[in-house]
């Protein structure tokens, strides 16, 4: 199984945890907090889109 196919079992509000992405990025020369904040905002949007279809 490729790494990206591993079961993540993300928490509520999360699709791909930042920690998983960070590990894939490896070296982080810039300000991690800026990237993390925006990653999590979009991740939350995706989460709401996914659950929208189940909450009908």
């Amino acid at each position: 199984m490729a790494d990206k196919d591993k079961l993540l079992n993300p928490d509520p509000g999360v699709c791909v945890p930042w920690e998983v992405k960070l590990e894939e990025i490896g070296e982080f020369p810039g300000n991690e907090a800026i990237v993390k904040k925006e990653w999590e905002k979009l991740d939350d949007f995706a989460y709401n889109f996914i659950w929208f279809w189940a909450q009908r």
Binding site: L7, L8, P10, W53
Partner: peptide, 16 residues
């Protein structure tokens, strides 16, 4: 039950 969000993406969305 093991991972609701992933199941929704992998199976439910294609099913509906």
């Amino acid at each position: 039950i093991a991972s609701p969000t992933e199941w929704l993406v992998n199976h439910y969305l294609p099913n509906i």
